[in-house]
Deep mutational scan, measured.
Amino acid sequence: KTYTFRVRIVDEETGEEKEIEVTAKSEEEAKKAAEELKKKYPNLKVELE
């Protein structure tokens, strides 16, 4: 079973919002993916929905 999570990304500089879908095998995995995004884009606000 896989879970699909919507991750909302807000670029703090431009105020631009993007939504991406993360497919993960567990909620834990999705959280890790969101953390990776935060590391990659430090000025983005990442929200897991």
Results as ranks from 00 to 15, higher is better:
residue 1 K to P: 10
residue 1 K to V: 09
residue 1 K to D: 10
residue 1 K to H: 08
residue 1 K to W: 09
residue 1 K to R: 11
residue 2 T to V: 12
residue 2 T to A: 07
residue 2 T to K: 11
residue 2 T to E: 12
residue 3 Y to S: 02
residue 3 Y to Q: 04
residue 3 Y to W: 09
residue 4 T to F: 11
residue 4 T to W: 12
residue 4 T to R: 11
residue 5 F to I: 10
residue 5 F to E: 00
residue 6 R to C: 11
residue 6 R to W: 14
residue 6 R to V: 14
residue 6 R to M: 13
residue 6 R to P: 00
residue 7 V to K: 00
residue 7 V to P: 00
residue 8 R to G: 02
residue 9 I to S: 01
residue 10 V to H: 06
residue 10 V to W: 13
residue 10 V to N: 03
residue 10 V to Y: 14
residue 11 D to E: 03
residue 11 D to M: 03
residue 11 D to G: 01
residue 12 E to D: 08
residue 12 E to K: 08
residue 12 E to I: 13
residue 13 E to S: 12
residue 13 E to Y: 08
residue 13 E to Q: 11
residue 13 E to C: 14
residue 14 T to V: 01
residue 14 T to C: 04
residue 14 T to Y: 01
residue 14 T to I: 02
residue 15 G to V: 00
residue 15 G to F: 02
residue 16 E to I: 09
residue 16 E to P: 00
residue 17 E to R: 06
residue 17 E to G: 04
residue 18 K to M: 14
residue 18 K to W: 15
residue 18 K to P: 00
residue 20 I to M: 07
residue 20 I to C: 13
residue 20 I to R: 01
residue 21 E to L: 15
residue 21 E to M: 14
residue 21 E to C: 14
residue 21 E to T: 13
residue 22 V to N: 00
residue 22 V to Y: 07
residue 23 T to V: 13
residue 23 T to A: 06
residue 24 A to P: 00
residue 24 A to G: 08
residue 25 K to D: 12
residue 25 K to R: 13
residue 26 S to T: 12
residue 26 S to H: 03
residue 27 E to K: 09
residue 27 E to V: 13
residue 27 E to C: 15
residue 28 E to D: 08
residue 28 E to T: 07
residue 28 E to G: 08
residue 29 E to Y: 04
residue 30 A to P: 00
residue 30 A to E: 00
residue 31 K to I: 13
residue 31 K to G: 05
residue 31 K to A: 09
residue 33 A to T: 09
residue 33 A to K: 14
residue 36 E to S: 07
residue 37 L to Q: 02
residue 37 L to V: 04
residue 39 K to A: 09
residue 39 K to R: 11
residue 40 K to Y: 07
residue 41 Y to R: 03
residue 41 Y to W: 09
residue 42 P to E: 04
residue 43 N to V: 04
residue 43 N to W: 11
residue 43 N to E: 05
residue 44 L to C: 14
residue 44 L to D: 03
residue 45 K to Y: 08
residue 45 K to W: 08
residue 46 V to C: 10
residue 46 V to K: 03
residue 46 V to T: 03
residue 46 V to I: 13
residue 47 E to Y: 15
residue 47 E to Q: 11
residue 47 E to V: 15
residue 47 E to G: 05
residue 48 L to A: 06
residue 48 L to T: 06
residue 48 L to V: 11
residue 49 E to N: 10
residue 49 E to D: 10
residue 49 E to Q: 14
residue 49 E to A: 13
